[in-house]
Amino acid sequence: MASRRSAPEPVANAGRPTRAPTIHDVAAACGVAASTVSRAFSRPERVNAATRARVLEIAEQMGYRPSPIARALPSGRTTTLGLLIPDVTNPFFFNLIRGAERQAAAAGYTIVLADTDESAEVEATLVDRLFRAVDGFVLASSRLSDRQLRAAHARGPLILVNRRVSPVPGVVIDSTHGLRRATEHLVSLGHRKIVYLGGPRASWSDASRWRALQSACRRLDVDLVRIGPLSPTVEAGVAAADAVLLEEATAVVTFNDLLAIGVIRRLHARGISVPGDISVLGNDDIFGADFCHPPLTTLAAPIETAGRAAVDLLLAALAGDSAESRRQVILPTRLTIRDSTGPAPASSDARRHTRTPSAERTG
């Protein structure tokens, strides 16, 4: 009498390979082609219902998860979004990243983050490499030219943060009103000459802030001097502080808070009082701006809101909402007064130096 052979048992968890299972492992366990496994996940209507059920059951037992990129081949979607920023170590971008990630996760998307190192060349390379791997891009403080941004937008969904390039949609943190209030604050304290420490040469935000500060100073008849361009770092602020002193101004406004913190450090090292001898005012209100000594007067920006809004615009573009995806979202800044600004000193004896020409000047 022939022995009875039992039916094959389903694949058990104990049978999982030590490495991550592949589509070919699942196909071998099911006795079907790898293409059938692929269709079971991406095109279920093209697979027999019983076969698909067995593929999904065994895939679950083996711990197999299909690659988002592989699943995107037939559908054209990866459920991932690219977020490119110029400097991952800059605290300004922390909340931007958080806002973008939270909004993307709520919609079932994953953020792919890349650091462009303040380089237009690196940024262009990353956009090109990631173009087929993500469904769309958010470019924060992009260093690409207007022409490059329009070309990238023509290839696929693209949203800008802190950059305006028609017809590319975007989110702008507008410092115009905040800088007007900041100038009025300094003038009310008796300051009649201000130095502006500019940001990177390719920064759209820097150019916008410089124009706004020029306008405010002209209206209030304040002497304004520009020093820059500068890297938006603490180290650059330390190096620029000596140049600020040569201008014999009583107040300095910086492109961002990191530059302001660097200026305060250098002035303290030289025995110059902030704000007793010179007032310092930053931009962005980054984490830690209120921890430095003295706490920094600055323009607070809704950075996390900007990240959320950028992802909303990108998702609208992916959904085909042409009206919503063409929008420009404008977010205002507000002046936050702390201890780094105070009354202008009666004299400039503490900072009397030989005057040297500056990069730009307006009055």
Results as ranks from 00 to 15, higher is better:
residue 321 D to Y: 08
residue 2 A to T: 14
residue 339 D to N: 12
residue 66 P to C: 07
residue 333 T to Y: 10
residue 236 A to H: 01
residue 91 P to H: 06
residue 167 P to I: 15
residue 196 Y to G: 06
residue 182 A to G: 08
residue 99 G to I: 11
residue 289 A to F: 13
residue 181 R to K: 04
residue 1 M to P: 10
residue 287 F to M: 05
residue 233 T to A: 01
residue 333 T to E: 08
residue 198 G to N: 11
residue 91 P to D: 12
residue 59 A to I: 11
residue 344 A to T: 07
residue 79 T to P: 00
residue 124 A to V: 04
residue 23 I to A: 10
residue 119 S to R: 06
residue 103 Q to D: 10
residue 172 V to M: 15
residue 255 F to A: 03
residue 234 V to R: 13
residue 226 R to C: 01
residue 43 R to M: 14
residue 85 I to Y: 02
residue 66 P to D: 05
residue 277 D to K: 06
residue 315 L to P: 06
residue 266 R to V: 04
residue 326 R to A: 14
residue 198 G to E: 14
residue 352 R to P: 05
residue 92 F to E: 02
residue 319 A to S: 11
residue 158 L to D: 14
residue 281 L to E: 12
residue 48 N to G: 03
residue 110 T to P: 00
residue 64 Y to S: 09
residue 357 P to D: 14
residue 275 P to R: 03
residue 309 A to W: 00
residue 180 R to C: 08
residue 258 L to Y: 02
residue 117 D to A: 15
residue 137 F to D: 12
residue 90 N to G: 09
residue 325 S to F: 03
residue 93 F to H: 07
residue 186 L to S: 11
residue 164 R to S: 08
residue 40 A to K: 00
residue 181 R to M: 08
residue 256 N to V: 04
residue 104 A to M: 02
residue 110 T to G: 03
residue 306 A to T: 05
residue 322 S to L: 11
residue 150 R to A: 03
residue 88 V to M: 14
residue 350 A to N: 13
residue 179 L to E: 06
residue 272 I to K: 00
residue 119 S to E: 08
residue 223 D to C: 03
residue 111 I to Y: 04
residue 101 E to L: 04
residue 15 G to E: 15
residue 263 V to S: 07
residue 138 V to D: 04
residue 12 A to D: 10
residue 173 I to T: 15
residue 343 P to A: 09
residue 157 P to K: 09
residue 23 I to W: 00
residue 207 A to F: 02
residue 254 T to M: 04
residue 285 D to V: 07
residue 223 D to E: 15
residue 122 V to I: 11
residue 281 L to A: 10
residue 358 S to C: 10
residue 50 A to V: 06
residue 196 Y to A: 03
residue 77 R to M: 10
residue 135 D to E: 11
residue 252 V to G: 08
residue 252 V to F: 01
residue 136 G to Q: 07
residue 15 G to R: 13
residue 100 A to T: 04
residue 192 R to D: 11
residue 72 A to W: 09
residue 87 D to T: 10
residue 301 A to L: 12
residue 333 T to N: 13
residue 199 G to C: 10
residue 245 L to C: 03
residue 215 S to Y: 01
residue 54 R to S: 04
residue 108 G to K: 04
residue 23 I to P: 00
residue 259 L to S: 02
residue 161 V to C: 14
residue 321 D to K: 02
residue 55 V to N: 01
residue 33 A to Q: 02
residue 330 I to W: 13
residue 81 L to C: 09
residue 295 P to Q: 01
residue 7 A to R: 15
residue 147 R to T: 14
residue 121 E to D: 14
residue 200 P to D: 02
